[in-house]
Simulated assay, not measured.
Amino acid sequence: MNGLRSRYDVLIAGGGIVGCYVAYFLKQRNPGTEVAIVEPDPTYEYASTVHASGGARRLFSCPENIEMSNFSIDRIKNFAEEMAVDGNPAPIDWVEQGYLFIVTGSNALRMLEENADVQRSLGADIRMLDRQGLKQLLPSMHVDDLDGAAYSPKDGWCDPNSFLQGVRKKCKALGVEFIKDRVGGFTWSSGRINGAALASGTSLAADHFVNAAGAWSAQVSAMAGMYLPVSPLRRFEHYFTGQRQIEPLPYVKDLNRLAFRSEGQGFSGGLVNSDEPRGFNFEVDHHYFDEVVWPALAHRFPTAFEGVKCHRTWSGLYEQCELDGNPIIGNWTGNHENFYVATGFSGHGMMHAPAAGRGIAELIDKGRFESIDLSRLGYERVIRQAPYPERGIL
């Protein structure tokens, strides 16, 4: 155990990007707050963030997600300066090359247009494209079976590992303690969690507890008697090259969950299988790219991907919210009210971590959301079994 204290103001289970941002904003609000993060694997071998694609976009339908993206993307763009330590910047290689959602069918197109109205009302630069507009933007794309697209030119992607390591290093510089251990249980009385038992046998007390354990968050909450509809969902990311050079791509995404983007001299992306059995499975299926991803790529960009070479495939976990695919951000109102969760991002955790971390810090400090009202993403909807899903966006 690295920490020397037996009691903290806030104890966070999970040292990934979400947990680190909770700690960061707690320290920003009150530098004297004693914050500890319990993380069993500081190498982050199985952490979701380091296996992510790095994308950050405003193409959502729920206003909360759009507003979180607005905030988070601004922080990502200014990350190198904000997270500098001792004058040393923290670059994360932001690439502002846009996002493109492509759809087939009048109903899907109408849904994109309605979503775009909401996005624009919240300040996003969204451009609707027809087939001709798509062909002008991406001459190599096969568009005959498409009815349109939403293009968000100010979105993009960054290096997720540098993102995580940068905020983690900043947290350490601000005095956040990182404890290499695993939460093994909680104790409570009078409606409040009062202690966490660690796997090492150590017990830590705190005034507030945060579950930011990602794909493991359901197990952590269960120790406090709290049910979370969050499951680990394996997904693959691939780095591949085509047989011919084509124009630089934005992050291209369709409703079948094909999603890929330019990456150096090649491309990075994949196609998520929503029916993948849930569980902590990190095995790589080396046939998946040829059997599932490549046909979709070759159909959409035949010139480039009729011949394609996959150089690397890796697996990671989504913390899939089985209720509605949206994150659960808030405390356990009416029960252990000093127990907070920030989880279930379903593939959007990296891009929304800054905003979610700030939201939890506001709840802990002031008992309410002060910047973005995330109440509809709170745990109450789980209790009520009242889904609040995105419209046509995965």
Rank of each mutant, 00 (worst) to 15 (best):
P91I: 06
V18Q: 02
G378I: 02
S162A: 15
A80K: 12
D373C: 06
V272N: 02
S371V: 08
L112M: 13
R235H: 11
I246T: 08
V85N: 09
Q132V: 07
K170D: 02
N70D: 11
E39W: 03
A206E: 12
G307L: 08
R7M: 14
H348A: 12
N78Y: 08
P160D: 04
W157S: 06
Q165R: 15
G378P: 01
M351G: 01
C310G: 07
S121G: 09
R368M: 13
V167I: 15
L228D: 00
H299N: 11
I76D: 02
G184S: 15
Q165E: 14
G270D: 13
C158I: 10
L233P: 00
F79L: 08
F79M: 04
A296F: 06
G105C: 11
R29C: 04
K77S: 08
A196K: 07
C158D: 00
C171Q: 02
M226I: 15
R244G: 01
A124Q: 12
H51Y: 12
E64H: 08
A218C: 03
L59R: 03
A353G: 06
R127T: 13
V272F: 07
G195M: 07
Y379G: 04
L363N: 01
R131K: 15
K154F: 06
A224N: 01
A222Y: 06
G14H: 01
D181Q: 12
V85R: 10
L134I: 08
F280C: 07
A196S: 12
D93P: 02
P139A: 03
P250I: 01
Q320P: 05
D365H: 10
S375C: 07
T104C: 11
W314R: 12
H311V: 06
D144N: 14
E96T: 10
Y24E: 04
G349H: 00
E34G: 10
E114T: 10
I73V: 14
D144V: 13
S48P: 05
D155R: 03
P91D: 07
P389K: 10
E283Y: 11
F267A: 05
M111A: 12
Q320A: 08
V167L: 05
Y46D: 09
A84Y: 07
F301S: 00
G15H: 01
S217Q: 05
E380T: 14
M128H: 09
S140A: 15
H336C: 11
S121N: 11
A56D: 01
W188P: 09
V167M: 09
L297R: 01
D365F: 04
I193W: 02
G184M: 12
I329Y: 02
G201M: 14
R391L: 14
D147W: 03
Q136K: 14
V341W: 00
A353Q: 00
A356K: 04
A173Q: 09
I179R: 04
H142N: 15
R381N: 07
P42N: 13
A13Q: 03
W188S: 15
